[in-house]
Every structure is written in C-alpha cells, then in structure tokens.
Design a protein around this nucleic acid. Structure first.
Lengths: 232, 232
DNA sequence: TCATCCATCTTACCGGTGGTAAGATTTGGC
DNA sequence: GCCAAATCTTACCACCGGTAAGATGGATGA
C-alpha cells in the first residue's frame, strides 16, 4: 500500500533515508529530527529504517562522514585553482571551509557540534583526519618554502584550523548576530579573520611575500579597491 | 516521604535543580540529561521542577546564562592582573576563555553548541553581549594606542573571538584528539594559537611592542625558556 | 515453472522523555 | 485559627528510539 510505484519494496530506502535525513538536518540543524519523521516523509513504517541503519546514531555518523567528504572535496577544488602558491592555497581552503559552513549549516553543525548523546568520536576519526589532509599538505608546502614561523606542523594546523573553525562556528550558530547583517560587512569580516589567521603564523619572509601578494591582488581586483582592511 | 529532612517542601528546589542539572551537564555535556533524572537525584517527583522552570529549555538557558557570567568573571579577574597593558590583557582574556572551556567543558558546550531543539538565541543575547564586553574594551584600548591594524572594532572582535573560540571548541569537542596528548605540547599549541591570533591583527607599531613584551616575558619566566615557538 | 530463501517491510509493543492536569500538602499572612 | 498561594504528588498524554515477530515479494536454483 506504500511506496512510490505501488511496490512493496522500496527502490533504495537507504539512499532515500540519507537524503531525507539530510534535508531534515538542513531544516533544523543537528540531530533535531526523529527517525519516525524521516520514515513518514518517505512513506514507510519507521522500523524499516533499521534494516539499513542499525541506529539513529549510525545514520548521523553516516551523514557526518559524507559531510566531511563534501567539505574535503570543496577544499580540493578551491585549492586547485591556485595550485603552487602555498599562501594562496591556505587562503583558498580557509574560504572553502567557511563557504561549506554557510552552504550547509545543518551538516556543519551535525559534524562539529556533535552533542547528540552517543556521539562516537572514533567512528569519525578517519573521515575527519582525511578532511584535514589539505590543511596539512599546504602547511608542509608553505613551511618548507620558509613562509611560516618555526612552530610544529601540528601546532600550526591547530592554530589555523581553530581560527577558521571558530569563525564558521560562530557564523553558523548565530552567536554573532550583533554583527552587521549587511552582506558586504559580513564578507569583509570573514576576509579579515582569514587574512589575520594567516598573517599570525607567517615568518618574516612569509610576511614579505604575503604583503606583495595582497598588493598584487588589490591592484587586480578593481571591484572593491580598499575592501580588505589594510595593515599599516 | 521525600526530602532531606522529612519535610514535604524542599528548601530551595530551584537552586537544587540548577546545581544538579549543572552537575549532569558536566558529566555528560550539552543537554544530554533528563529532567526526571535531575528530579530523582534530588529525591522529588519530576513535575516539581516545572514549578520553578517552565520547561527544560528554560532551565538550559538559565544554566547557559550563568555559565556566560562565570566566563565573564574569569576574564575580568585575568584581565585585572595585567591592567594597563592592552596586548597583555588581550592575551589574558583569551587564555581565560580557554581555561573556562577546559574547566567547564559541559557548560561550554551547553553555551556554544546550542543544538538542543528549541534553542532561542535571543534569550541569551543579553548574557552573551555582556560576556563580550571585556573583548570590546580591550580592543578599544589597544586600538586607540595604535597597536592594531585599521580594521573595524566589530571585525577585530569577531576575528579574535573566532580564533580563541575555535580552539576552545575543538579542544572541548574532542576534534583534535590527534593532537599529542602530552599536556606540555597541548599547552604550547594553545600558546601558539593565542599568540598568533593577536599577532595577526597587530599594526606595525603593535608588532614592535608585542615583540618587546614577549622578549621581556621570555627573560622573566625561566621555567620554560623557549616554550613559546619563536618567530623569525 | 515452481519452491525456497532471505532481505525487506509491517504491525505491535517496550521503557523512557518532555509536558500537562488535577488533587494533596504545607507554609505564610491575616 | 483560617485561608490563599505556592509547592509538590500521582496519573496521564503523545512522542521518541529501539525490539520482536510475522507478512511480503524478489532473486535463486532445480
């Protein structure tokens, strides 16, 4: 009596569940949906879901893993466009991170808030470490080019990740609603946060290169000449 | 049949609920506890709670507000110790922020993950903006002393808050378990993240002052002479 | 072609949760 | 001493995640 084409068996329930759950995550953020709701939207009894996912937690972890993969892909694409320039790559993956959070706030919260009861960090460890490969790659490149201060790789990664992640998290979680709503100001603030994060870990040489690059970029983009807050 | 001293009325149920709920938050983090559990620990029927808090959400918001107040107080104390030196104050409130997150990870997650269903950002707006007054104060002071780059106050606040918040969030949420567990390395990484965040928003003059201050501090603290990754 | 197997999906149920209703109990004020 | 208001109780509701046991139907092998 159910199913799209009058068939008893659903074509690909697992995929339908994933898609529907992701939509609900996008609507409400986090894990604030019920399996019964997912099942109802598909037109199926709720225990049917358990034939494909052992628990709601498993489904959430599945969605989180897929989200991390999309984040990784987004960073890869952004990075490829400026390949060869480590500092530009750093900026690119940072902006891609923010863009992901803004494009998929629900998924982002699902991945990083991870406050649902039985969140198992280990289950996502692989996906998460895979998602940080771009960051580590770029840091290694920039480091061996002498552009970064002489801190450890890991410390640098955490520092840069923190800055970008904090911005994304505050943006997505509505904790900086006081921030002027104007999209332009928002963009400028994001710009400043990312530029500052990079500027904070540069070596003296890195600072020279960074300034030159910024100057070139400023000359090139005529659209918003002094949009990036200049550094005296 | 209930109550500590055989009395029907509990002495101060509201306070007991707050304390018990906060303990459960500390144990499990976030909103992963039930009102029935809180009531059972106190030795009271669960609807009794509703005489003091209109809903679980109201209780959570209450706890979050109190947590923000503790965070604010912690920053105030840390700041007072180095009053008059804007960059030192900046560092102090950043470290206090991290210290709060590490001392009360459950409360921190409750405040900032805010993924429980009916989270009302507006309800905490006052407490939250009150909690950022130290940051804005210090930024204004540093800015009028010419120590910061010429970006807007708000953008600077978001930039610095993002860096510190991101670090706290990653630490508390277990997303950087790959980070060497050794406490010393952890401390060094935190140090680098905070120093870099500040370094990223300095003016040229600020950079000079910052370097001098760091040099003085390095000479003063003999305990860990080269613990702070040096900048070439 | 048919019988069988097995994944899939169903209905019915479990304990637990946030929240409400209505009544019992105690305290504080008159 | 009595009454009103606040507090706390028992009983209930709909909903949740999850399980059990049986119905269904598509694929496989003869």
């Amino acid at each position: 009596m159910s199913g799209a084409r009058g068939c008893y068996h659903h074509g690909d329930l697992a995929a339908a569940v994933r898609a529907t759950a992701l939509a609900l995550v996008a609507e409400r953020g986090g894990a604030n949906f019920s399996l019964r709701e997912v099942a109802a939207r598909i037109g199926v009894a709720h225990p049917a879901v358990y034939a494909h996912f052992p628990s709601k937690n498993a489904l959430l972890h599945d969605l989180a893993g897929a989200g991390l993969a999309r984040l990784h892909a987004r960073q890869g694409k952004a990075r490829a466009k400026v390949a060869g320039d480590p500092l530009a790559e750093l900026r690119a993956i940072g902006r891609a991170y923010i863009a992901f959070a803004e494009a998929e706030p629900g998924a982002y919260r699902l991945i990083f808030n991870s406050d649902f009861a039985d969140f198992d960090a280990a289950a996502l460890a692989d996906a998460r470490s895979a998602a940080t490969t771009h960051l580590y790659d770029v840091i290694r490149a920039a480091r061996s080019a002498g552009l970064l201060c002489d801190a450890g790789e890991e410390a640098l990664a955490v520092t840069l990740w923190s800055a970008v992640h904090g911005l994304a998290h505050l943006l997505v979680s509505g904790h900086i609603a006081e921030m002027p709503a104007a999209a332009a100001a928002r963009e400028l603030t994001i710009e400043l946060a990312i530029e500052s994060a990079i500027a904070g870990v540069l070596s003296t040489k890195g600072r020279r290169v960074f300034a030159a690059r910024t100057a070139r970029a400023t000359r090139a983009t005529r659209a918003a000449p002094r949009s990036i807050p200049t550094r005296r």
